[in-house]
Structures are given as C-alpha cells and as structure tokens.
Design a protein around this nucleic acid. Structure first.
Lengths: 247, 247, 247, 247
DNA sequence: CATGAATGAGATTTCATTCAT
DNA sequence: GATGAATGAAATCTCATTCAT
C-alpha cells in the first residue's frame, strides 16, 4: 500500500525540510481511493503535496490519449494548472513523469482487487466475476483506462517501464486469478484444468476489451460494450471450466 | 513543379475494397518476392517501382516498434536504402506514409483469410481454426505483427486512420467469423448462440495475444506463447459453443 | 516593502579602502561569532551578519571554478548553507553577487601588499621579492586564486567589472611596484631602466602563473610550480635590472 | 599534421557520400596560412565544405568574446550566416563545436612556428625573437587571439579540452622553445641555464600579454602594448641568459 | 529574516519538410 | 528521378528571479 506513493519521489534528493509540522489547513481534494498522503501537510505557496498528483493525473490523461512522444509537457502542465517549469520541480524528466504516471495509476488498482480475495466468502466463480468487474470498473472510475494501452505502445521504447508493469501489474493479477482458479478446482467447482492456461484465457479478453475501449472503440460501432462483454465472456469461460457435476 | 504531387503516389486513402475476396490490384503486389524489372538490366539501383514498397516496409517496422511520433523519417529512409528527400517523392507527408503503411500491410491479410472461406469444405469448427491460425501466421510472416498495436496507439491522434482500420480490417474479419459461426449453428454444429457476441469472444483473445506479442511479450516471461495460446483458446471456445450432440 | 533594497546590502562598489592597515573584512560585520539572537537561545542557524560573507565565499569558489554563466545560484546558495531566495536578500542580482565576489576577494590582498611597502626597510630587491611572494600566497590562503581568471573571462561581458578591477587592483599593484623600482633605481640598486616597462615585465609572469594555476595547471604536467616559478622569475628579473656595480 | 582535421569530424557518422570525390579534409585548415579553398566548387545548395569553417570562425569569435556558456548557438549561426539547425549538421553539440573551434584555430599556429625552426639559419636569439613575434602575429591575423583565454576559462568545465590544449599546443611550443634554447647553450650563445625553467620564463610573459590583450586590455589604459611588450621582454630575457662573452 | 514553490523566458537540440543541384 | 543541405518550428529542460508563507 505504501507502494503507491513511494514511487512519487517528489522533490529532489536535497530536500531540506527544516521546519516542523505546520499548517494543516492547506490540504488537497483527496481522490476516491488513493490515500492522499495524510501526514506531512504542505507548507508553502500552494499545495506542494498535491502537485505531483495533479501532474500525474494530467500526464495519465494526455499520455494515454496521445501517446508519450506526441504529448508535450506544456500541455500537461497547463492541464495541471501549473507552468512548464513546475513539472521539473517534481519530476526529473518527461520519462520520469511517465514512469510515475503508469505506476501510481495502476498499482493501486491491483491492490484493490487483491484485497477482494481476502474478503471473499463466496464461490470461486463468484469471486472471479467480482474481480473482473471490479478491475474494469476501477480503471474507468480513476480515469486511467488508457494506461494499459500506453504501456503496450511504449514498451519497446522504455523496456524498464515494461518490466515494471509486467512484474507489478500483469504478474500480480495473474497470480491472483490463478489462486482463485486453483481453489475452484480444489473445491470441485471447476474441472481439472491447466490453471496457467486458464488464467491467460480468462484475462486476455478483458485486457483486449480495455485496450479496445481506450483506442478504437469510439470509431468502432460494431465493437462490444465493455461491461456487457465482460459478462458474456465470464459466462462462456465458466461454462468451459465448469466441472461435470456443476455443468 | 508537377514534381511533388506526381503520379506515382502509390497508396492513397481511396481503395476501400470493402468487398469480399479478390482485389489483387488494389494495394500492391502482395507476394513477397516480385522481381519485375523488365527492361534495362544493367543499372544497380533498385527499380523505381519498388521504392514505395521498401519505404512502406521500413515504415511498418519502425512505426510499429517505436510508435509514429517517436520514429523519424531519416531512419525510415535509411532502412529503405534511400535518402530523406525521396520519401517525399512517394508520400505527401509522414502521416501519409503512416496511412499507407497500415493499410497495405493489413488489408492483404484480410484478403487472404477471406479467401479461406471460399475454399473451405470442412466443418465450421475446422474453418475457424484455420482462419485464426492463418491470421496469426500471416502477420508474423509478413513482419507486420506490430501494426495492430500501432493502430490502437495512434487511433486518437489519427481518427481517420482508426476508422479506416475498423472498416477495412476489424469489420471484415468479424463479418467473416460471423458467417462461419452462423453456418455452424445452422448445421447443428454449434449450439444456438448469439453470433455477434460469440464473434467478439472468439476474436478478442487472439487480438490481445497479438498486441501482447508485439509489446510486452519480450518482457513477460509468464506470458503465453502466441501459437499455443490460440490453440487452447480455440479448444475452450469450441467447447463452450458446441451443441449438445457434439459435446 | 523596503525589504528588498534594505540596508545590509553589504558590499557595494564604493569601499575603496586603499588606506591604512587591517580591515580585510571591512565590508561586513567582521566579528566571526556574534550571537545576537536575544531571546530564544536554542536555535542554531548561523548568525545573520555572516550570510553575505558566506555567500560571497561560495560565489568566489564556484564562479572562479566554472565561470559566471555556468554557475547557478542554487549551487551557490547550497554551498553557503542558505536557500536560493536568501541570495536576494543580500544581492540584487547574480551579477551583483559577481561584483561583490570579485571586489571583496581581491582588494584586501592589494591592501595587504600595499602595507608591505610602508613597513619595508630592506633593499628594493628584497621588497620586490616579498611583495610577489606575499601576493601569490594571499590568493592561495584566501581561496581566491581563481578570481583573476574569472575577471579576465568575464571582462567582455561585464565592462564595469573589468574597469573596476583594473583601477582597484591592477593599477594599484603596478603603482606599488613602480614605486619600489623607482627607489631601486634612485638608490643605485638597479640600472637606469624604463620603470613602466619593467613593472609590466615583473608582474606579467606572476599574473600568468596565477592564471595557469587556476586553469590548466591540473592538466599540465609540464607546467611550472607556482612558488618555484616566482623564485626563478625574480632571479632572472633582478639579474636583468641589476646595476653594473651589483652585477 | 593530420591531427588537425581529425577532430572536425564534420557530418554524422553515417555520411553516405555516394557522390564523386570525397573531400573530408575540406574544412580543416591544414595549410599553414589558410588557403581559402580554391579548387572544389560546391555542389549543393551552398558550400557544404565551407560551412564548418564559417561556423568555427563564428564560434571562435563569440566563444572567445563571451565565453562558452554565455554564448548562444543562435548567435553563432547568425554570424555564420546560417540557421540554428544547420549547426547540428556539422557538429553534434555545442560542446563539440567548442572543441573544433579551439583545436582548428590554434594547432595550425603551432604548426607554423614549428616550421620556423626548420628553416632557421640565424642565431638562437634571433630565432626566439622570430618565433615569439610570429606566434603573437598569427593569433592576431587569424582572429583567434581570444582562444587561449577561452581555453583557460573553460578548462575546469571541459577537462578533455584542457588536456588536448596542453598536449597539442602548450607542450609543443615548450618543446620547440626548449630545443632552441638548448642549441643556444650548446653554441655558447647562452649561459649554462636550466632550459626548462628558461622556457617557462620566456613564454609566460607572452602568454600573459595575449590573455590580457583578449580581456582587460580594452579597459586598461596603463597596460602594455602587445608588440612592444614582446620586444622589451625579449630584450630583458636575452640579457638574462646571455653568456659571459656575448654580454 | 528565510524559505523554497512557482514562474516563464530562453537555451539546446530534433526533425518534418523544402528545394537547389 | 534522387539527393541531402538547409530551414525553422517546436520540444525538453534550466535557471534567475519573485513572492506567499
């Protein structure tokens, strides 16, 4: 959980931070679920603490829409309500902003769905449905639906970003799904399947629908509706993996 | 100065070719190895006619790898073995080259799989397998596996490109698959399914696997192998849609 | 808001102080350790009075090392142990800091060597030796060896600075040396020479050695050692100007 | 000798050079006294071969006058009669231009004075005079009088440049002077002196006068005239090293 | 007094596009 | 037809300076 804001790395590595804790007033409009950095309230001119979030939010929106290279920092700054130079108060470079944008926007979602498993008390099938629906919904609600597309588009240009995404997002989600599938098999809810294979089969359509939603969907009248698609996919998938008895 | 907008302008956004099969004329000599070179054997320099193809090939490779904005024309020209200025003899602009690259690389593949339906004589299931395998194989063999990723990444920046792709690629493939599915239902091979829904479900995993293969795959040890994935997906899918009798 | 152009403006282009003894510090609260801070004894922070000196010291070091334009004020502030904004409490601009840095670092040295003449009781030759050795030593000990190089490098960009330096440093040293030479001639210690010419000849090698020491020396294995060089130069020079008798 | 133009490295490391006669040397001032490239008329739009020289000439002038950091490339380009971007056709970076400017402007002068020794037939004293006069004159005539000052000012920022300058300029001149001095000693023209020491003593005043001429001279009414100064220095120096007989 | 967040002009560098040869 | 030198707009990034706290 503290994972999310660690990457922020705000400020430079020379922060003096001489003064003590002051001024609680200034804080910022907290986002839906992202823990808005509670302790350490800002102290100066404007919300220093809030700036990185605003910038990241603007960056996510523009990078996801236009791609990294096609987005210029002036636009990002403008959208965040600051001037060009301010970006460099919080991020060492455009690339650094990209990394922060990707990580801070997606990792918290993985955290959220990971939590679902802990609280789960229904069947594996039900949990899978909950997971996928929640996964899709979180991207939408947080306005980060375009991030997976962004990551795939830039993977070749920023290998490190790709590796990060794979290990901190893809792999985690796969492990989560695999655990649930395994439980379903153990409980006789699912047939004896190849869990790894089934994991990919369960996730791939969802991933594609997200990519599609963030790219071609507006131009694709014949394309699927994201929510509907998830439902029908779930139905098909569960029918496929159902054990003899449940079938 | 009729030089600039001369005849040659090879590929231009006109050849819709929404129709069914054929259409060899349209885009370009689809066969990889076409040594036309009629008269004049002596001179070295690649024959004029080939320039656009080489440029497009270079453009496909680089745009797909790095994205449109991150690719510069000098590199494209160098890869094609010509000088920067030459690009403008064949394409009005970088964007024009992008359009040509996308269109000429993918449409022929749709043509190929479209042909498969015509020649088909097996079951619908068999045909679906053949279609998907061929689809995937063609992208690989033609070195255009990264194009779908490119199109999705640039959809927002080039709406016209997106529309084109949807109508000349996505929609055509969907119609093709829908026809086969419908036949399977009619023939009692498949259960009575929602064809449109099933079409999306059949294609999505394949599309995702292609996107993944062209982006995160090199960084994703836990990811699926494209060919294997298609096979397992087919198995799952067919199991899901199988009619009672065949099950 | 008289805050900005407040009193403190420590060093300003006025304190010629060619006069008497002491006072190298002249330009600022000379007491190193003045703990004013009446109430509240706890706080650490260096006392106010010292700020300008520390800033100037930092500025001298960095400007001399990197040049004016290549040095940024943040680094100067950091080296002085204050924040960026604080620089502007004491200096109107970066250029103002440059002027203060140059003036306060070199003029006191001229004062010192000027004093030597007053106390002198040996021969002119001895005095010349003392002067040059002391001149060189003072630059080293005060950590301002790079200032002459700085001034020469920036002369064209800051004519006023150059004029200042010429009149308050170069000219004064030349007059000093000329007086001693004249005395030597008068006393029959030196031959009848062109004093002005001899002054330049005596000073030039020393000046060059200082410039070299602050620039190329670290990269110049074959270069002279500053102290040794001054000695051999003195020997040569004195041999040249010696009167027949002394020769 | 080929040393001089190697650094120029004009163009990029991908120069196709499909055309006729190469001419990579073109730009470098390999000839002692800059022959203005008579043969080889340009081929394209403007003199590609001449561009580097024009740019270097502009760069030398501005860098030497204002310093490296204080000079902007737009001004350099303007002075060379080209646009900003053109600079990057010939130099990879501003720093690269600096290196080329320094090297190509000074090394040829060393070549010239080196030649003087070969042709010499007078006494060592005469040769020393010729060398120093010619040294000073060449800097003036070529408009590169400010380069030594530039190098010293930037030595700390560009160590490699400093090393280069030391080895290809300072050391060579010293070796040259040392050879002549040694000959003078051998021939009984000079007393038995420490040649290394004498070399420094002979050169230092000249070097200083050059630095002074390029920096403070315009603001220094009391300063020496360069040519006069060299003469009086020579007289003094030769008197100091003269052997008993010649004295 | 001091701070350091914020600004925005300006510098370096890139690159699509043009055009003389 | 082809070339590649040249352009200049635009992008990233820096930094002196201001000012709310």
């Amino acid at each position: 959980m503290p994972d999310a804001d660690r990457t922020l790395h705000a400020v430079e590595p020379d922060a003096e931070a001489p003064a003590p804790a002051v001024d609680p007033a200034a804080d910022a409009p907290s986002k839906p679920s992202t823990p808005p950095k509670p302790e350490k309230p800002p102290r100066f001119r404007r919300r220093k603490g809030a700036r990185p979030e605003e910038l990241i939010s603007a960056a996510v929106a523009l990078f996801a829409e236009q791609g990294f290279a096609a987005t210029n920092l002036k636009d990002v700054a403008k959208r965040a309500g600051v001037s060009k130079g301010t970006v460099y108060l919080y991020f060492r470079s455009k690339e650094d902003l990209l990394r922060a944008a990707v990580r801070t926007s997606v990792v918290p979602i993985v955290d959220v769905v990971d939590e679902l498993e802990v609280d789960a008390d229904g069947t594996a099938s039900e949990l899978l449905g909950t997971l996928l629906r929640r996964w899709v919904a979180e991207f939408d609600e947080r306005g980060v639906a375009g991030v997976p597309k962004l990551v795939m588009a830039e993977a070749n240009n920023f290998p490190e970003l790709a590796e990060d995404y794979v290990s901190s997002v893809l792999s985690r989600v796969r492990r989560l799904v695999a655990r649930v599938l395994k439980r379903g098999v153990r409980d006789g809810e699912f047939a004896s399947i190849d869990v790894r294979e089934a994991t990919h089969l369960l996730l791939a359509p969802v991933f594609w629908a997200q990519l599609h939603g963030a790219s071609l969907a507006p131009f694709d009248d014949g394309g699927p509706d994201l929510a509907d698609f998830v439902e029908s996919h779930l139905a098909y998938f569960l029918r496929s993996v159902a054990s003899k008895e449940t079938r």
